[in-house]
Design a protein around this nucleic acid. Structure first.
Lengths: 224, 224
DNA sequence: ACCGAACTGTCGGGTGGTTGACCTTGACGG
DNA sequence: CCGTCAAGGTCAACCACCCGACAGTTCGGT
């Protein structure tokens, strides 16, 4: 394993989350690295398209990836940050991709080929079990989101989205229409919600930009 | 493996979904059977409670199980039919149960003990991979549900819930308040929605009972 | 430097859903 | 057989959100 590959594999390791009771062996990582390769994607290009045969899954390493459904690129259903796993659902189920994935900025990702990955998983149960834990964690967060969707005002949802998306930094680059798509709300309502937050002095807004000026106050409004 | 155990294990086998590319070996089933045992639950008793250490997962074999959060038994977050897997999220993540599970009627389930199951999964990658596929399938359906929640009238959601819950039979035993809890809607609105469906002649309603009289027409109204 | 495309900001009308209150009906135990 | 509690049914007031429309702003390409 050369130095270049080793670097990316190290990244993969901590990308599968903490699992105290499932230590990864160095040979596990090596096997993983052999199941795919690093890919670079320019902004606007696709990692995969809805309906295409799902012969690979991706782990995002750098950059942002937008997930959307339908031909209309407006129906954004999710955003993948570094660390996110993409396309694994369709790949493991042996069905076509259920959404399209497009790079927003310059994206570095690790691509797992189905035909190579499955044999590896069948001989490395620890990796499989880790993947399972990661998948179930995502399931849990999605279930929580279902509960949070009802009985929450769009204002609160926007606030949470901003905190989610900020992820350390304090500037988010996202059009209000895209935010609306993510939340399943209308652009107008999102605009209004941002107006409220702005007048409360916790954010500033600009062209495709939201800057969080008072993170703790913003977190308070979400509750919890 | 005695006849009794064999019967339940056979049931487990087809409960883990399609057998397309991951054939289970008879010894796999035997190993699975050794990781737990069949349990019977009387109506109203708990399989597990929110907050308790998650040392087991369950596969429902017969009966209905209600999942709810909080001390208030009104916040139903889901229902488990035969074939559903319960508590695996918390168990694999090594965290307390995130919801409580109560038997609605007489329930037969297979209980997997964490300490026994994990060693089995680590030596039987095919089972692990199957569990992974099952978990991801559930993730996919939850994601679809998130999309369906917005921009769908309660009437449509009720219609879909009825079809979901009927599951072959044509009578559903569920209070309107419980349905409202499942959908995150108010009891009044659910009542109104049922009224519409009734006046359309596709269902009949009674005390804690809904009977589907025209399944295909009901399915049509959901659209999708 | 200009022009078109994409984005922000804002208004008014319409509506599906919530909340609260109240009455009726059904189920079940003493 | 009756009391009681749970569930069904209905009404009115209120509100968050959606939709269509339109004007002003920013950006990127040529």
């Amino acid at each position: 394993m050369d130095e270049y590959t080793r670097e990316h594999v190290a990244w993969l390791a901590h990308s599968f989350g903490r699992t105290d009771y499932l230590p990864l062996h160095p040979t596990d990582l090596e096997a993983l690295a052999g199941a795919g390769q690093v890919v670079q994607k320019y902004p606007g290009t696709h990692l995969f398209r809805q309906g295409a045969p799902a012969d690979a899954a991706y782990v995002v390493e750098r950059g942002q990836v937008e997930l959307y459904r339908g031909t209309d690129s407006r129906r954004v259903v999710g955003r993948a940050q570094p660390g996110s796993v993409l396309g694994d659902i369709a790949m493991f189920r042996g069905e076509p991709y259920i959404s399209s994935a497009r790079a927003v900025d310059a994206v570095t990702a690790f691509r797992f080929d189905r035909d190579k990955l499955i044999p590896v998983l069948l001989t490395r149960p620890i990796i499989t079990l880790r993947w399972l834990v990661a998948g179930l964690s995502q399931l849990e967060s999605t279930q929580r989101r279902v509960l949070g969707l009802k009985h929450r005002t769009v204002r609160d949802q926007v606030a949470e989205l901003l905190l989610d998306e900020a992820d350390g930094r304090d500037e988010i680059h996202l059009s209000q229409a895209a935010m609306a798509g993510l939340l399943g709300a209308s652009r107008q309502t999102v605009n209004e919600a941002l107006g409220m937050l702005r007048s409360e002095g916790v954010i500033q807004t600009g062209y495709r930009t939201v800057r969080i000026t008072d993170r703790s106050a913003l977190a308070d409004t979400v509750g919890r």
